[in-house]
Amino acid sequence: MAETVNMNPQNIQNYLWQSIVVTVLCCLPLGIPAIVYATKVNNALMQGDTDAARKASDNAKMWCIISLVCGIVGGLGYIVVMALAAAAG
């Protein structure tokens, strides 16, 4: 059996599934850079460049959070505004 090499000993996250969820459910334009940075994390890890992987990981996390906050705040704000508009007639 082939020996499996640990490509990611520092356990750097790529936030791939979070990026996909925010892209599909929250906010498409803000989720796309998150997926792009997730790709960069995997690319850097394949080349053994831990520093670049960490940098891309931080960016992926940032874009996921931005997109999630926009989705939640924007969605709830929109519901409140529409409810107020409906109540005002």
């Binding site: 490509m7 990611n8 356990n11 750097i12 996250q13 790529n14 791939l16 599934w17 979070q18 996909i20 969820v21 997926i35 997730a38 790709t39 960069k40 994390v41 995997n42 690319n43 890890l45 394949m46």
Partner: peptide, 27 residues
């Protein structure tokens, strides 16, 4: 499928191989 793999690995704290997906497939 990929979302559930990531979700369970984050919730239960085991290490998934989601960072080993080849970049071309994510693109």
């Amino acid at each position: 499928p990929i979302v559930l793999v990531g979700l369970f690995s984050d919730l239960l704290g085991y290490k998934s191989r989601i960072t080993e997906i080849r970049p071309i497939f994510i693109r």
